[in-house]
C-alpha cells in the first residue's frame, strides 16, 4: 500500500502543472476579451455620434468629446479645431443642407481607435459659407479616424472628398488668377 502514497504527490504535481498552464493562458485570453469589450463600447459610442449628427443633436460634443479633443481635417492639418469649433462647423452644414445625412457602411474598432467610412448626402437648399443655394444634390465619401480614451473621443482625423463636393455644388478648378 505504501507505493500508492508515492503516486499521490506525483498526481498532484501533474494537476498543478495543468492549472499553471491554464492560469497563464487564462490571463492572456482575459486580456484579449477585455480589449474586445472596450472596442465594442468604443464602436457603440461612435455609432451614437453618427446618429446624433443625423438627428441634429449638438449635445454630443459636451457629452461624448473630451475637453482636449482636436479635429484634424484634412487629416494632416497642423492645426486642430476644438470640439466647440467643430460643433460650429456642423451647424453650418445642418443649416445649409437641411436634409444632410451620413451613412456609415464600414466601422472598424481596434485598440483605442474607431475608424469609419462614411457616405454623406444632402441637398443645397440654403446658403452655405457664402455659396448661394443651388438646389444641387451631392454625395461624397470620406474616412473618420477617432481615438477614444476613458469613454471620450479625444482626437479625430478626417479626409473627405471636398473637391468632389464643391464640384457638385457648382464650383470648378481653375488656374489661380495672377495677383495684381
Amino acid at each position: 500500500m505504501k507505493k500508492y502514497f508515492g503516486v499521490i504527490p506525483l498526481v498532484l504535481l501533474f494537476c498543478c502543472s495543468f492549472a499553471c498552464q491554464d492560469r497563464a493562458a487564462t490571463a492572456e485570453l482575459a486580456k484579449f476579451k477585455a480589449q474586445g469589450a472596450i472596442e465594442k463600447q468604443n464602436e457603440a459610442l461612435v455609432r451614437r455620434v453618427v446618429e446624433a449628427l443625423n438627428a441634429r443633436d449638438a449635445g454630443i460634443y459636451q457629452e461624448l468629446y473630451g475637453p482636449e479633443y482636436g479635429w484634424y481635417f484634412p487629416s494632416n492639418n497642423p492645426k486642430a479645431l476644438t470640439r466647440e469649433e467643430e460643433a460650429g462647423f456642423v451647424k453650418l452644414l445642418w443649416d445649409g443642407f437641411p436634409d444632410i445625412h451620413w451613412e456609415v457602411p464600414d466601422v472598424i474598432a481596434h485598440g483605442d481607435w474607431v475608424i469609419f467610412r462614411y457616405v454623406c448626402r444632402g441637398t443645397h437648399t440654403r446658403e452655405y459659407q457664402g455659396l448661394k443655394p443651388t438646389g444641387n444634390k451631392f454625395e461624397i465619401g470620406g474616412f473618420w479616424l477617432g481615438r477614444i480614451t476613458n469613454g471620450k473621443i479625444v482626437e479625430a482625423r478626417e479626409d473627405g472628398d471636398v473637391l468632389g463636393w464643391m464640384q457638385q455644388l457648382g464650383m470648378e478648378l481653375k488656374p489661380k488668377a495672377p495677383t495684381k
Binding site: 487629416s75 494632416n76 474616412f143 479626409d159 473637391l163 457648382g170 470648378e172 478648378l173 488656374p175
Partner: peptide, 22 residues
C-alpha cells in the same frame, strides 16, 4: 482598396483654385 486624399488641398498647392463654374 478605398482611398481618400485631400485632392482640393493638393490642387491648390499646384496653383489651382475653386471658382463658380462659368
Amino acid at each position: 482598396e478605398r482611398e481618400e486624399l485631400d485632392s482640393l488641398g493638393m490642387m491648390m498647392q499646384l496653383g489651382m483654385e475653386l471658382r463658380p463654374k462659368e
